[in-house]
Design a protein around this nucleic acid. Structure first.
Lengths: 200, 200
DNA sequence: AGGGCGATGTCTGCGGCTGTCATCAAATAG
DNA sequence: CTATTTGATGACAGCCGCAGACATCGCCCT
């Protein structure tokens, strides 16, 4: 056995999620988390840039999954299909262990700063997906739109999955949402007068 | 003349933008902004919840504009058209005074915390738009998807407008992006093998 | 056996942010 | 016209998030 217990990062992440869930994010100090994991506050901040980041431990691996799934899509697949497949891959992985996901979602939803950080993570996801699409030869604008739209669909759908007590299949829900989006976007300009919308 | 100079909030916002642009967000203290506006640090935090929020002074009025534009769309217009019109209205308003918008964008882009806050603001916009769509009778899922997708399109397009040195017409760019999104989403499933994407 | 290395602890300090109370001019009541 | 209330501000004290600097100490490599 080493000088220290192994997996300090993981212990901190676990302790943080527990404490945040028990007593709230704002009511929990970094020193408290560290103590709960048998470490000091200073060490906490060596492993995580700030008090929020500890809740997103492991999200990097999802980035790899996204990139891989986009790259693995058949060459003939359009950008939206590639993104859809990537999101379904993530959805399937999340669904494997729903309980931590639900707990994390509850904690994040309860706090403004955490919601902001989560949106930033989604922004990173979108940027990564867009880059992977460009690697497939998708033009810049189409790649950005497909990636941003895809993450937006994921957010909306994940919230619905949580609200449905997770009895539903997340990848299946994602496919349905993508289909709904296609219909909604295609429905535009139906029976609208020539003078509207404004502009040419 | 009153006991104090008028418009403390506006003075703080102006001083903050100037200082953030000159020396960076992190290098600027709240006390410095307050002093620059002839006030104290404590008063700064009475007017703005935190150091980031001061950069988003006035964004509430955009919310009103969005709600109004969605409500004013013709009854026959679909949700995506109503959202598109609302975004164009915002784009037109932003375009009226491009310089502050460009400066603000540069400051926000340069700092992670500020980018997070901006995403949170876009999230509020999306939630507000979705509510306005539901008031038009649009079903929950379609409203959320249209609103989130619309704000995503706005973000991508605004960045392109800025990058183009703003010689372009923002509402026009927004229309083009919406058209591109429609094409990209409609293109899905073209010539993809039956075994893909996974699932039914 | 010795020396570098990496993860941690300790100490110290700044800045963001808040609670609390005092102040004072302007609006309002009587 | 005076008394009172109100609302914005200042002054002061304090917690917590977070970071720099330095010491410690097992582990690994030679």
């Amino acid at each position: 056995m080493g000088r220290w217990e192994p997996n300090a990062r993981g212990r901190l992440a676990k302790a943080a999620l527990t404490l945040y869930a028990e007593q709230g994010f704002e009511q929990t100090t970094a020193a408290e988390i560290a103590r709960s994991a048998g470490l000091t506050e200073r060490t906490f901040f060596r492993h995580f840039a700030d008090k929020r980041e500890v809740l997103f431990y492991g999200s990097d691996s999802l980035l790899d999954l996204l990139v891989q799934a986009v790259a693995d899509a058949p060459p003939a697949a359009g950008p939206v299909d590639a993104v859809s497949a990537a999101l379904q891959a993530v959805g399937a992985m999340i669904q494997e262990t729903p309980e931590p996901a639900r707990l994390r979602y509850a904690v994040v939803s309860a706090n403004q700063e955490l919601r902001e950080r989560e949106l930033a993570k989604f922004g990173e996801f979108a940027a990564t997906i867009a880059a992977a699409l460009r690697d497939r030869g998708v033009p810049e604008l189409a790649a950005s739109l497909a990636a941003e739209t895809g993450t937006a669909v994921y957010r909306v759908t994940f919230a619905r999955w949580i609200a449905g007590q997770a009895q539903l299949d997340l990848p299946e829900l994602l496919r349905e949402s993508m289909a709904e989006l296609r219909d909604v976007v295609a429905d535009r300009l139906l029976s609208s007068p020539a003078s509207w919308p404004p502009g040419r």
